[in-house]
């Protein structure tokens, strides 16, 4: 990978080092020569912290979507006289515990990876995946319970928001599950190559964010006015 080597200036060297001003990564200190990811299609590897930055930005966008939903909920609840709170299925709290547990197992998996215990890493990853799927299943069961009670999407603004927020969160979590499946499939390569660990970290970042988002949504849905 010859192209990764920094080409020195061909002409004369700069007389003062600070005229280069260090590397360009003013916000990251160690930018250019940092972690090496896989090569981009063009050739040079994309630094790993770029992936992290990308994930932060994705999370910012997701956060804004939910912020918009939140403000819609707050405004809609504030102005309306047709708001009848929907009693949430008790199952949601169990689901919450499951999701929290999944975050914990993902952490255990990550630690196992750091400690170099590949088998444990994969096992905890499975546990996370199972818990994640269980959460999704649990959410679906919670929907069923509401449907059985005759509470549908359009029954009341509060139920509209309930279905909206749970499904929006669920879809995002499914994305996370897709990521976990990918990690599982690549578990071996991840264990063998230390560079691959960033993927796990980024996946964990997303997963924990979804976890936190769920707690927030649950609070939003349960807190009355």
């Amino acid at each position: 990978m010859a192209s990764t080597v920094l080409t020195p200036p061909k002409h004369r060297a700069p007389s003062k080092s600070d005229s280069i001003g260090g590397n360009g990564h003013g916000w990251d200190g160690d930018g250019f020569g940092g972690g090496r990811g896989e090569p981009s299609p063009a050739g040079r590897p994309i630094p790993l912290h770029a992936y992290r930055m990308g994930m932060y930005m994705a999370l910012a966008a997701i956060l804004m979507v939910f912020a918009a939903f939140t403000s819609a909920l707050v405004v809609r609840r504030g102005i309306s006289n047709d708001w009848v709170p929907t009693a949430l299925p008790g199952l949601l709290y169990l689901n919450t515990v499951i999701l929290l547990a999944s975050s914990a197992t993902l952490e255990l998996s990550r630690r196992a990876l750091t400690a170099g215990r590949g088998e444990a890493f994969a096992q905890w990853l499975y546990a996370t995946l199972v818990l994640g799927l269980a959460f999704i299943g649990g959410q679906l069961l919670a929907w069923r319970e509401l449907v059985a009670r005759g509470v549908y999407l359009s029954t009341n603004p509060s139920s509209s928001f309930f279905y909206l927020l749970t499904s929006a969160h669920g879809i995002h979590l499914l994305g996370g599950i897709g990521g976990l499946i990918y990690l599982v499939l690549r578990a071996r390569r991840i264990v063998s190559a230390a560079k691959q660990r960033t993927i796990v970290e980024i996946a964990a970042l997303y997963w924990h964010f979804m976890d936190g988002l769920w707690i927030y949504l649950l609070l939003l849905l349960t807190v009355r006015s």
Binding site: L6, I20, G21, G22, N23, G24, H25, G26, W27, D28, G31, F32, I46, P47, H49, A50, Y51, M53, G54, M57, A58, A60, A61
Partner: peptide, 23 residues
């Protein structure tokens, strides 16, 4: 959104040596 996050990450992370923000 996909485009935007790509732009941000690219600008912040992929600047070459010497390309300070103020350059």
């Amino acid at each position: 959104l996909l485009g935007a996050l790509n732009f941000i990450a690219t600008t912040l992370e992929l600047r070459t040596r010497g390309m300070k923000l103020m350059r």
